[in-house]
Design a binder for these strands. Structure first.
Lengths: 222, 222
DNA sequence: TCTATTTTGATACGATCGGATAAATCACAT
DNA sequence: ATGTGATTTATCCGATCGTATCAAAATAGA
């Protein structure tokens, strides 16, 4: 898998940091382990990134850039879509990203559990702006009749993103308890299908065929 | 708030462990910090619990017992309920528990992110049996027409629990970004309402009043 | 009140942590 | 080929980690 992070020491460190922070969180990850996984001397971290904190911030920034590019991949086509199609498009992109890079949600989760300067930074630079826009879009979709209107937009939003990514966050548990790999392509597709069916009420003026037809145009993130 | 854990050193340690492990996970929590929060000497942990690992397991067991008691509080009345009422009843109990003791979900999340002996123990003793039963109940509810039937029960289940508890897991983030305390009673009620509206399709043979009426009988966990 | 047992407190240990330092090595222009 | 700045490596430091030890203190039963 090409990620553009295989070349120099700095990139190898960033890649290893994403993996380690995504598995063990900030406190559970040691810079020595990151350096080992990257195959470099641990002193290099101090050189390329001034501290463990800076490396963590760089990993978060890298993942958020990926998320941004992924979710907005079809932005140019949005103007030709109905509101419902836009929701389906971005939800599908979001779920595929959650499957491909569960590290971002995991890193955010680790920090969201308690107060810290990292959570300050995370909230100010990413969570607040991203979530504000997402909730605004949710509210708009409610006005447009895509989502149910009798639910607070904030609850709707947090239910949506939880439904989308939870199964990938808990992948090790599901693998262990039921021997199911939720990262398999069929599983990802099944999950996209399940989320859309559950959270998007059926279109009232036409049959299910309309939704089924749209689904063939769903984006693929690779 | 009475929890029955305020009395002796052992109980104070367990209570502090629940809080600390719930905030910082196993790796992020030091036994010295737990002892400080409990107001006892950190050597006492070795005496009452043989190790940090044992203390963690005790905290998990304590929380799962609480969950079990909470979710099955109305079990005796289940035989007089319709399938839909049973789902509403247990979902409501589950959401109230998630709001009252977010530590359990958080501790499980911390461990679910990576492989470990603690995850082995957790899966074998709690996650697998609990989740198996929950998925079986979900499948049954699908057969009974309470949940949509065209979604795999596993996806349905993980979407359900994610929708129910995610907002409480991310409470610090929501507080920080939007100054909303999701643990307020109104917020909890609003969230229960939102989850039930979103994930339980409307009853086809009657109006919404039937659902609204049932809601007055919803259980309260205190 | 004496004694046996339980519980707590003070301290020490080896390991590992993040970070700092300086020497060694490398890439590359002149 | 040589010098120079960029990068890597090898160590070291103080702090903190989990845990072990053992005496002091508290407690309970006779």
């Amino acid at each position: 898998m090409e990620t553009g992070l295989e070349f120099d020491t700095r990139s190898k460190l960033l890649k290893a940091a994403v993996v380690q922070f995504g598995k063990y969180g900030f406190a559970g990850t040691s810079v020595r382990k990151i350096a080992d996984e990257a195959g470099v001397n641990h002193g290099s971290i101090k050189y390329h990134y001034s501290s463990k904190d800076e490396l963590w911030r760089s990993a978060v920034a890298y993942l958020y850039e990926l998320l941004d590019k992924t979710v907005h991949a079809d932005e140019a086509k949005w103007k030709d879509m109905t509101p419902r199609e836009r929701i389906i498009n971005s939800a599908t992109h979001y779920i595929r990203f959650s499957a491909k890079h569960p590290e971002l949600s995991r890193i955010v989760f680790f920090e969201t559990m308690h107060e810290s300067e990292r959570l300050d930074w995370l909230t100010e630079n990413y969570i607040r702006p991203y979530t504000s826009r997402a909730i605004a879009r949710t509210a708009l979709a409610q006005e447009e009749g895509v989502y149910p209107a009798d639910i607070p937009a904030m609850n709707m939003h947090y239910i949506n993103i939880a439904a989308a990514k939870n199964i990938f966050l808990m992948a090790p548990e599901i693998k262990r308890a039921f021997d199911i790999d939720v990262f398999d392509d069929e599983q990802i597709d099944a999950h996209i299908d399940a989320v859309l069916k559950l959270l998007l009420p059926p279109i009232n003026h036409s049959s299910d065929d309309a939704l089924a037809k749209k689904k063939n145009d769903l984006p693929n993130v690779d």
